[in-house]
């Protein structure tokens, strides 16, 4: 069932890549429509925790697909169009987080959860940094704006959400896995 070879790309990865993308799309859309309380221009998207979870549970390819396609779909149904650099950033976010998969064997064990969160934060850093910096060419902003105006708030928002929700997701998942096959 769960073969922990990190870079495998078969039916399993296709399915969970797609499911992750659909979920990420739906959740981001939901929070685009009903925004959560935001501090400054930090916005909180619980969807990110779900993306990181899919990475951690099913690996980097799933994380990449779920992040890229999911963010694209989310923007599309909201009506925002397509922002390739943010979609790619989200992809990287899930992909880096996915590198932890092989290292996790018990989803409710504290150390493993810690690992997942750590990789998640790494992923968020990489992904959002990429998106923010590319915004310099796409949006024509200067380095400071990219860093202070885009990266920092995006990182903080996603990090907070991940730190809070990812452990809850992983613990719940441990329960589900326990009754695999009814």
């Amino acid at each position: 069932m769960n073969n922990n070879s990190t870079w495998e790309f078969g039916t399993r990865q296709v399915v969970y890549g797609a499911i992750g993308a659909a979920l990420y799309g739906v959740f981001s859309w939901a929070t685009n429509i009903f925004p959560l309380p935001a501090a400054g221009n930090v916005t909180f998207r619980p969807a990110v925790a779900v993306l990181i979870f899919f990475g951690a549970a099913y690996g980097p390819w799933v994380g990449l697909l779920a992040g890229f396609i999911g963010n694209t779909l989310g923007d599309m149904i909201t009506g925002w169009g397509f922002y390739w650099n943010w979609s790619l950033g989200n992809g990287l976010m899930g992909m880096v987080a996915g590198l932890v998969m092989a290292a996790i064997n018990d989803f409710k064990a504290r150390p493993d959860i810690m690992k997942a969160v750590a990789y998640g934060l790494g992923g968020i850093a990489v992904g959002m940094l990429f998106a923010s910096l590319t915004e310099m060419f796409v949006g024509g902003i200067d380095f400071n704006t990219a860093l202070v105006g885009y990266f920092v708030p995006a990182f903080i928002g996603n990090a907070v959400v991940t730190i809070i929700l990812l452990p809850i997701l992983m613990i719940a998942f441990a329960g589900v896995a326990a009754r695999r096959g009814r």
Partner: peptide, 8 residues
């Protein structure tokens, strides 16, 4: 017990 781990 975790509810999600229970039988249907």
């Amino acid at each position: 017990y975790p509810p999600l781990g229970l039988s249907f």
